[in-house]
Write a protein that binds this DNA or RNA. Structure first.
Lengths: 187, 187
DNA sequence: TTCGTTTTTTATCATTTGATAAATTATTCT
DNA sequence: AGAATAATTTATCAAATGATAAAAAACGAA
């Protein structure tokens, strides 16, 4: 998925603004297992996934929580760095070799404060992430782990081929062994 | 909390833009138990809470999920209406008599597309809600219900005085009876 | 291929939470 | 105050998930 499609997916931008914005992107290729964002540091860039898949996770005490999987078109981002210029809580690792579009948060912020079209693109970007986050929260409150698992593979049918069950379990908020039991009781 | 403080809390706006924005607000007083936003309709307004407390909840099949409590300075909003102009999933009820600042989504959208300062305010607003949503999600994945309860009353110490335990339980994703048992095992 | 490592499954027992019902306490209304 | 209603607690049993261990299957590197 190229940068044009990725940007338009969120919100169309007029031609001249889009050129300005696109000039700030740099393409990078990184290998599987690369830890592209580390927690407890201010991350200077955000990335959009052209090709590949990434996992956002966070460690607290002994627990590791998988916050999200990012596929083609999705963003690799430390929210606290991007929004508050503070140390983030997210680690992000690449689960496959990836091609990414990279942009510096500073450059993007400059465009936000000078170009209204880009500012509104940024607004739409945050708004759409917000809806996703709230719906994810609701679905977690609502259903059993079984329902959440079925919902996940229905919504992201290719995920099972790309990601190990251990990581999916941690995304669902259960142990890997529980997920295995759940799967055994379905099919 | 007045509208100036509420707006500044999210992101400062220059004087002339703020005047433009503030002109669009209308103050309304509504009574306890009023259902200010109903699910499955496109809500035309959003509200900021000057005084009082509200609860956002959603019904699916037989389950009711409390998504959020809104206190002074917080927003009463149907995200899908605000962001996608679509029917929302949220019901919002007032848990006390409330004084609110009301603004039409259409007017706000017009300001977003014409005033870069207001557009960036709207961006910051969504971004800050996004961080809250993600952190809420993480804390739900991480801890036991007991830990979440303790965290909640630590973060919002007045909530227990304003909201019944049944609603707090539904916010924590457990039954009211379970919360009662948890409380008995703490003190 | 083959050996070693990782992932997944299966099994057992403990813990947490849910569902239901009944008792107690608090609140509201007249 | 007293009655009615709502909120909270307590108790019991069932269901879901966690923790741990061990076996089986899949995967990867030499």
């Amino acid at each position: 998925m190229n940068i044009n499609e990725i940007l338009d997916k969120t919100h169309p931008i007029n031609a001249s603004s889009k050129i300005k914005l696109c000039e700030c992107f740099e393409e990078v290729s990184l290998q599987k297992n690369h830890l592209i964002i580390r927690s407890n540091k201010v991350e200077k860039n955000i990335y959009f996934i052209k090709k590949g898949i990434a996992r956002t996770f966070s460690n607290f005490d002994d627990n590791e929580v998988t916050i999200a999987f990012g596929e083609e078109g999705d963003t690799i981002i430390s929210l606290k760095s991007y929004i508050l210029y503070q140390k983030g809580y997210e680690n992000i690792e690449l689960l496959e070799d990836c091609e990414l579009y990279k942009i510096s948060v500073t450059k993007l912020q400059n465009l936000f404060s000078t170009d209204i079209d880009i500012a509104n693109w940024g607004r739409k970007f945050a708004e759409q992430e917000l809806i996703k986050a709230e719906q994810r929260f609701i679905s977690n409150q609502l259903g059993t782990a079984t329902e959440r698992y079925l919902e996940l593979i229905k919504k992201h049918p290719t995920l099972l081929q790309r990601v190990s069950l251990g990581l999916i379990a941690s995304y669902l908020g259960i142990t890997q062994v529980s997920l295995s039991r759940i799967r055994a009781n379905i099919t």
